[in-house]
Design a protein around this nucleic acid. Structure first.
Lengths: 348, 348
DNA sequence: CTGAAAGCGCTTACAG
DNA sequence: CTGAAAGCGCTTACAG
């Protein structure tokens, strides 16, 4: 920086101000400095910046990485968060979920990152109290179980309760009277991943409200798991004419197994897939989907984080008692896109 | 740190030495310091460390994120690199591929990271010259086209040429005389992703060597793309009895379409899938696979990076002419796991 | 085995 | 609109 200042004939602090844009600079001076910056190929040292400004311009993203489970959706989240972060001039530090609460404390109290975004929150997640005590902004992608509960944390998610209900309503409107839900892998429920439970709740409650029969079952990833799951569902209620597949990873096997059973979609059986829109066309029948708006959620998460950060940084110098920005909870409304896999049930 | 030093009754520098372990400390003093560190909940400030030591303990990982393409494999890479990095006390900064060469320059010359790991190298990739000029260690997951070429960069990858050949040999050994390769999406070849080309080359050359017919075709992701691809392959060579599916994302559609055509696997047709082992059991027939050892490759990449870094940091103080560690290229041997989807061809 | 002190490269009140 | 200077919190020669 000193070299740049010399080359431009100004004080080092002026170079800093040109780069950070934190005070107005005469057009002339600015030009000089920018020129020298370019000529010397100068890049400010991130560590030095972090040390003197107490800001790193890095966000942590905690990603769940379970082999085979939900990879497409997770990738979309990661990709969208990374891109949105860069658009706001932030970089992304990737944390795996199994670093747990300690990992959050580590990156946060070493000032490696300015804030954290956490995916895949579980009911009674041990990270929540930690997150709340961090003294740095935290945003959850995914809402803890009591949606409106006093988590004190900012959340953004699809409204999975409404999504479950929405699927039921679509099928009930078409005339279906008996439904089934092919759920996530058992491990997902055991972990208490909140989205799984919330969707199931919406599904069950709406079925009750509409007076249609509904049952659900967790479903493992292998072909045998899928067959066993469908066997069970069809045995327990042979009249099922509508199924909702919440487990995106298992869609191929489900579609293939249904054909093998001689159940035509949608003539004999209607299918709704809960998955990213991009997967809808990958089957012989274009799938009616309950979209998971991963890209939008990722962008929102970043925006909410930045907003918290702005507030946080303003409050810092002024009062010791920074009024923490009131934690918002944004739940996106579900959007069902009808394609060719849902229709009226067969006449009996 | 000053507080910790006071609490422990030692000099700040001693605290530093205890934490970094860079010189021997009496057991007594160490205990005192460690105690104070714990009592005060002290965490060293990453920025300050980076500034004075010129090391950040962060690695950049450049990840290709194309919706739908190869997501499972990419996730496995990311997960394994992240975990391996943590095991060496490094964090991971995630860069998307579309930040390109500029992104590499940015994180590197701002000293945000100590080294970079780059996935999905293309033939004649514009990032290669940049990587070579970085003055920081760089490791490629994936080899540029001329495997042994003078890239001057350290690479680790599956030996895709051998992998292609290995698939052909397995099928030829079983007695198949006409083979087909369902390749990656056209976009992958257009980008010149090197693994796609290398696999194809191995496949083609081995077929020639073994005197079996072989053709290949790119294949898009949608069901219609898959059907068109198989239509084309079977039309051009109706005697095909063995196919290799390199495009993991398309496996479900392929298997489902084959059944619809009345081609039983493996009685009528043998299938080899190039994919992670974890996907082998997700179909009605357990798939014979050409494994993509993503986890192992990720770990190797991190180890090679650390080794470069060690060398780099040792050379720095001594000579201006740091002899750059001779760039290694490690190509893992392919491993074919036979399961139930390959067998002798039908007698004619 | 331990200390005192310089210095890493920025940002940001404080002055004018 | 611009400068001079303190200070952020560590690491690491230099000494003893």
């Amino acid at each position: 920086m000193v070299d740049v200042a010399k080359a431009a004939g100004v004080a080092p602090s002026t170079v800093s101000y040109v780069i950070t844009g934190k005070r107005s600079i005469s057009a002339e001076t600015r030009r000089q400095v920018e020129r020298s910056v370019r000529d010397l190929g100068y890049h400010p040292h991130a560590g030095a910046r972090a040390l003197s400004s107490s800001r790193t311009n890095v966000l942590a993203l905690v990603v769940p990485m379970y082999a085979g489970h939900n990879v497409a959706v997770v990738m979309q989240f990661v990709s969208s968060v990374a891109t949105a972060a860069r658009a706001h001039d932030y970089d992304l530090l990737l944390l795996t979920k199994d670093e747990g609460a300690d990992g959050l404390r580590r990156v946060t109290s070493s000032a490696i990152v300015d804030a954290v975004i956490v995916m895949d929150i579980e009911s009674a997640d041990p990270r929540i109290p930690v997150l709340r005590s961090l003294d740095r902004p935290a945003v959850l992608i995914g809402a803890p179980d009591q949606v409106t509960g006093p988590t004190g944390l900012t959340c953004v998610d699809l409204d999975f309760v409404a999504a479950g209900a929405c699927c039921v309503n679509h099928l009930a409107d078409l005339g279906h009277r008996a439904l089934a839900l092919v759920g996530h892998a058992p491990a997902v429920y055991q972990r208490g991943s909140s989205y799984a439970g919330r969707f199931l709740r919406g599904f069950t409650e709406a079925a009750q409200a509409r007076g249609v029969r509904a049952r659900s079952r967790a479903c493992g990833l292998s072909y045998d798991d899928v067959r066993a799951c469908l066997d069970d569902l069809f045995t327990k209620d042979p009249k099922v004419t509508g199924i909702v597949v919440q487990n995106e990873s298992v869609l191929p096997s489900v579609m293939s197994d249904l054909r093998q059973r001689g159940r035509r979609v949608p003539e004999d059986l209607s299918v709704i897939a809960v998955c990213p829109e991009s997967m809808a066309e990958n089957y012989a029948v274009a799938l009616t989907t309950m979209a998971i708006p991963a890209t939008e959620l990722g962008e929102l998460a970043v925006e909410m984080t930045i907003r918290q950060l702005d507030h946080f940084n303003q409050a810092k110098p002024r009062a010791k008692m920074k009024a923490p920005l009131a934690p918002e909870t944004r739940l996106l409304s579900p959007q069902l896109v009808q394609r060719d896999s849902t229709a009226r049930p067969p006449k009996t």
